[in-house]
């Protein structure tokens, strides 16, 4: 394995109309690392994550997944199969049961035989602590269960990288823990993860680095100890203070 990062983002720019959403973002993510992105709402965190999966097409810049450049690559579907994406609003397919949700990527995209896919889907659901709900439809699941099914669905595709876009912000407070526990376990098993989240407890205990983004720019990035104890930039200080006021110490 070379020392090349798994994900390298170079000078990413995106504007919607007059509004500059990403204004020259660059950072690396190495294999096995977890980085957490924080920042005020509407400052491009989601757009950044979507760009990595090219659900949004950046105006400028490069995104490298290993040796493949994503922004201008030909076969984006092949790339997307290697990147797991977990949405804020779950994105479960409403017409499929939990099990079928996990299976559909395997059978229809990866063309894995049904029997094998079934086994794998069961395994992944079990891994996120959801055995026994296989045949329920999304409308019958709690928010925490939905999000865990979504994570299982992403994991089943054997991704090199997992992107989490505010995975707990649509959840009732008492359900956040079960999702964070799954994510923590995942990070500890050396999955490479990029997480947009304001769960500071999670960031502190799991992440290798925290990236603070404001107005489309990286204001500061540092390991959690440094970030929480001694942030360099006054804006970071201010934001973290506001967060702790809103969410407690976490």
């Amino acid at each position: 394995m070379s020392d090349k990062p798994l994900l390298r983002i170079i000078n990413l720019k995106k504007r919607f109309g007059d509004k500059v959403v990403l204004d020259g973002i660059s950072f690396d993510l190495n294999k096995g690392e977890t980085k957490v992105i924080i920042g005020p709402s509407g400052t491009g965190k989601s757009t950044l994550l979507k760009s990595i999966n090219r659900l949004v097409v950046p105006d400028e810049g490069e995104i490298w997944l290993g040796d493949t450049e994503i922004v201008r690559c030909k076969n984006i579907n092949a790339i997307r199969q290697q990147i797991g994406y977990v949405f804020q609003d779950f994105g479960l397919f409403n017409h499929l049961t939990a099990l079928e949700n996990v299976m559909i990527g395997l059978t229809k995209v990866k063309k894995i035989p049904k029997k094998e896919a079934l086994e794998r889907a069961r395994y992944e659901l079990n891994r996120v602590g959801l055995s026994g709900i296989e045949d329920l439809y999304p409308a019958q699941l709690s928010g925490g269960q939905k999000q865990r099914v979504a994570i299982a669905r992403a994991l089943a595709m054997d991704p090199k990288l997992m992107l989490f876009d505010e995975p707990t912000s649509a959840l009732d407070p008492e359900l956040i823990g079960e999702v964070l526990a799954v994510m923590q376990e995942l990070a500890e098993s050396n999955m490479t993860m990029l997480v947009v989240s304001h769960e500071m407890g999670f960031a502190r205990s799991v992440s290798d680095e925290i990236i603070f983004i404001e107005d489309g720019k990286i204001v500061e990035q540092a390991p959690p100890e440094k970030m929480f104890k001694d942030p360099e930039n006054p804006r970071t200080r201010e934001f973290l203070f506001k967060l702790s006021e809103l969410y407690g110490e976490g």
Binding site: N53, L55, N77, A78, I79, R80, Q81, I83, G84, Y85, F87, D89, F90, G91, L92, F93, N94, H95, I104, G105, K108, V109, A150, R153, A154, M157
Partner: peptide, 20 residues
């Protein structure tokens, strides 16, 4: 969200229409 989720799994536009 259903389109986004389908694309994120690597489905093509047609697969998304037909399966989702």
């Amino acid at each position: 969200d259903q389109y986004m989720a389908a694309y994120s799994l690597g489905m093509s536009s047609w697969q998304t229409i037909i399966y989702v």
